[in-house]
Amino acid sequence: MVKMGPSSSSKSQAPENYQVLLGNTQLYHQTQHTQKMSVHHIITHPDFEKLHPFGSDIAMLQLHLPVNFTSYVVPVCLPSQDMQLPSNVSCWITGWGMLTEDLQLSPPFYLQEGKVGLIENTLCNTLNGQRAGKGETYAVHEEMLCGGDFSTGKSICKGDSGGPLVCYLPSAWVLVGLASWGLDCWHPAYPSIFTRVTYFANWIDEVMRLTPLPDPALAPHARSPPKPLRAAGLPGPCAALVLPQTWLLLPLTLRAPWQTL
């Protein structure tokens, strides 16, 4: 699991103010498997919130050094632009956010997870519209994805922004969404809203192709770049040789805090 935290202002867009911790399952506890990475470049989507609240809520982080994949730090597959999700697909959310609107996660701050289903956007807008008010409706648009579990109340909550929505497709885990916003997380919870990764597949590919690679020698506490290795726990299409990567995805909620209406 990725934990990203600024060393100063939470609204800063300066890469030097952030560090990325890989391989943590407890929020404040690092182990021998933790990788602490410095950020070289933050690329925000140019259309963020230009058309509607939380629109194009996505950014890419380029790290100074490649990630060394291990059995504790494993990549997830990126979807293609035309990937279709079956209605019964198994999807999971993870994060260290609030357990409910007024209950914080307590020590030792273990990573929380929950199984959720995908909800069609039209139905999601109907459900959210029952609660929308204060002069503005926070609608679910085509670049967004809706998910939740009405029986268990599983949903993202304050502090979960940026977390992954991963779904198990035949033989591979795929990053389908990025936790973006929601109305509230009381039980029964309102649906959670995610950035739809497939919608931005071309933009992600373009950023990776056109952005120059950083010079590893200029990285803080530079180490030797890791050798390519087979990533543990990735069956099927993603089990091929995985080259060390320097890119991470997250929503732009670095600047846009959780919204409770």
Rank of each mutant, 00 (worst) to 15 (best):
T100Y: 03
S161V: 06
H64G: 02
D160K: 02
C157I: 01
F200R: 09
L254P: 01
R131Y: 07
P6S: 15
C157P: 03
G55H: 12
G236Y: 11
I93M: 10
N125D: 14
G55Q: 12
F150L: 11
P228R: 08
C124M: 09
E143H: 09
H29V: 12
W258N: 00
L254C: 04
Q245H: 12
M1S: 08
L51G: 03
M37D: 01
C157R: 00
G147Y: 07
A14H: 12
Y18T: 08
R131K: 15
G129I: 06
M37P: 02
D47T: 14
A189C: 10
P164L: 07
T195I: 09
Q84D: 09
Q30A: 13
S12E: 09
M37F: 03
V176K: 10
G163S: 11
Q30R: 13
D57I: 11
W258G: 01
P226D: 11
T260P: 00
C185N: 08
G147P: 01
Y138I: 05
G233D: 08
I93V: 15
T211V: 10
P46V: 14
C157D: 01
F109C: 06
H33M: 11
P53N: 06
N68K: 08
L78H: 05
A239I: 01
G133S: 15
L210F: 08
Q19A: 13
T211Q: 13
R255K: 14
G236L: 08
M83F: 06
T198E: 00
N121I: 04
W173S: 03
P191G: 07
S10A: 10
E49Y: 01
K158D: 02
T94P: 01
M208R: 15
G153A: 13
L210P: 00
A139I: 03
E206F: 09
Q81S: 13
G233P: 08
I204K: 07
Q13R: 14
Y28K: 14
I204A: 13
L118Q: 11
S8Q: 14
D149G: 08
L123P: 00
H141E: 15
S71C: 10
F150I: 10
S90C: 03
E120I: 08
T152H: 09
S90Y: 11
L111V: 06
I42H: 08
I119C: 04
T126M: 09
E206M: 11
P226N: 08
I204R: 07
W173P: 03
V166R: 07
S9A: 13
G5W: 07
L178V: 15
D184I: 01
H187M: 05
Q84N: 12
A232P: 04
